[in-house]
Nucleic acid binder design. Structure first.
Lengths: 134, 134
DNA sequence: CGGGATCCATCGCGATACTG
DNA sequence: CAGTATCGCGATGGATCCCG
């Protein structure tokens, strides 16, 4: 961790305002840390999808919430929203280059998660067992 | 994104239960996506710190919330909590190898965030300006 | 000093119903 | 089809007070 951004994080920590809304890591974490954004990115990796298909692929997401997620991502320039003037309505969502480039960092996180999930789950088991014993 | 974990994500998506609590990416995202965990990891990178120092370094975090964060991280095996039997009490927190290894993926995310923050903020500005115009 | 206990504000998220 | 409107729950995070 030697990037300027990390320095920024350290600096903001020492300044006591690490939650400066312009802290890059915070901005990104607030976006992909929500419940559906990472899943949307994964679903759109192979190409554009329309609203209903996206909704079916992800499963279990309420229309309102999916709309919220997509709007936030559009606002951040992660995807484009294309309305086709026809009946019935058809709206396509497609990752921008910016959004597609986020798959890299997510993959890194995903690889780490896959490698270490066992350790995390085991640690949780131990911790809870020790707590129960008391 | 060709890891097994990503396949797992895709599979769980197609199964409609992508929020299976055992989805590795979800577990990790739920932890580092919270408000303070990433900051704690950054603060502990250079060595162990005691509670009060950690609290001062991060700034703006309530004792209760910091305790919650540290306990969750301890439960997941990301750090160790060492109570020194002395008066006044002294408790040290230190990253485990597992916790330290998380700095890699976080750095990747941080680098991406630093590189693209400008584009995100610009996109937000455009989006909001267009919305205001209406 | 390092919390535990309690109360509380906020907000993400979800279920349901309705519409251009 | 692709949303919007409304209602409301539950979890996170915070403020305050207290204790070993």
């Amino acid at each position: 961790m030697t990037s300027t951004c990390y320095k920024y994080l350290v600096v903001t920590i020492s300044r006591g305002d690490a939650f400066d809304p312009d802290c890059p890591t915070r901005v990104v974490l607030d976006r992909i840390g929500d419940k559906w954004t990472a899943l949307v990115i994964g679903s759109l990796e192979d190409g554009p999808l329309r609203f209903s298909v996206l909704r079916a692929r992800i499963g279990g997401v309420a229309p309102k919430v999916l709309t919220q997620t997509l709007r936030a991502m559009e606002r951040d320039g992660l995807l484009t929203r294309t309305v086709h003037a026809q009946v019935p309505p058809r709206v396509d969502y497609e990752l921008t280059p910016l959004g597609a480039s986020l798959t890299g960092p997510i993959a890194t996180l995903t690889d780490w998660a896959e490698t270490h999930l066992g350790a995390i789950l085991a640690s949780r088991g131990d911790y809870d067992a020790a707590a129960d014993a008391r």
